[in-house]
Design a binder for these strands. Structure first.
Lengths: 141, 141
DNA sequence: CTATATTACATCGCATACGATATAATCGCA
DNA sequence: TGCGATTATATCGTATGCGATGTAATATAG
């Protein structure tokens, strides 16, 4: 009843996630971003004005992780954090000009990662859907 | 050229890995283990005597992560760390009786996770193979 | 045989993750 | 209306991950 590591789906996910971040590393180093920071900026680039909470629901992180991360992005001048006037509990997160500018410098990353994956876009899309289904199952369980 | 988060394979892996660890959490809390500690013990339960280096190749972690983790397992009395007499650079990692005993208390975990995944064993196996293939591609690239 | 390179592990610094808890603001109900 | 419950962030402590570097032991070239 003890599966060896190579037979464990959880280890496949765990090690593939690390391998993926390893591929992103040199690409993100050029932008001075960490991988979770890149995810947060992606949410801001592709979406609209956000609160800490709405960002957290998208990147699946809690405020205990997001708040320090967002402070670092603010220190770098990429975003601004301001208390909402409508609801003083909320903090609005918006891109600065520098944060918006960074989007174009990150535009080549998806293609670079696709190429390193060695899979076709179709295969990758199918795989992504299966992984997402598994994730939502695990989340709901 | 900026993909939204739900379309990114890397985010699917990232969030699925977190969801998976969330499922393991209550199961591992009963054993007082963290998820990476469980992976290391799995390698020891299913394999033979190991060095820090051979363990690292299996769980895909470097000594900078493994050494503190192994020290915590040693503090808990689950493993022993001893310098190899043949090569003083190496540290041999072996299970203690307590560490071996823990294996039976963890025996029910794979079935519990399989059930929460909502997938058949066949589907999960196929998905695992695809993810492993992607990981090895990314690693080799 | 010895100086140099390589290897195996450890240490340090920084940035996540996350459970538990704190705090301030808003909500809901009697 | 007022007060307890809920909500949105923030803080704290612990455990990863990992790049860079340190250190001791072993391997190797000349």
């Amino acid at each position: 009843m003890t599966l060896p590591l190579p037979d464990m789906i959880c280890f496949a996910l765990y090690s593939a996630t690390h391998a993926m971040q390893h591929v992103y590393k040199p690409l993100l180093d050029d932008l001075g971003l960490t991988y979770p920071q890149y995810l947060v900026l992606t949410a801001l680039w592709t979406g609209e004005a956000q609160t800490v909470g709405s960002l957290g629901r998208q990147v699946q992180l809690e405020s205990n992780t997001l708040t320090p991360l967002l402070k670092r992005l603010e220190d770098r001048g990429l975003i601004s954090r301001t208390r909402s006037s409508a609801d003083e509990r909320q903090v609005n997160i918006t891109l600065t000009d520098a944060g918006r500018t960074l989007q174009s410098r990150a535009a080549h990353i998806p293609a670079a990662v696709l190429e390193k994956s060695g899979l076709s876009l179709d295969d990758l899309t199918r795989l992504r859907e299966q992984i997402t289904t598994l994730r939502d199952q695990l989340r709901g369980a």
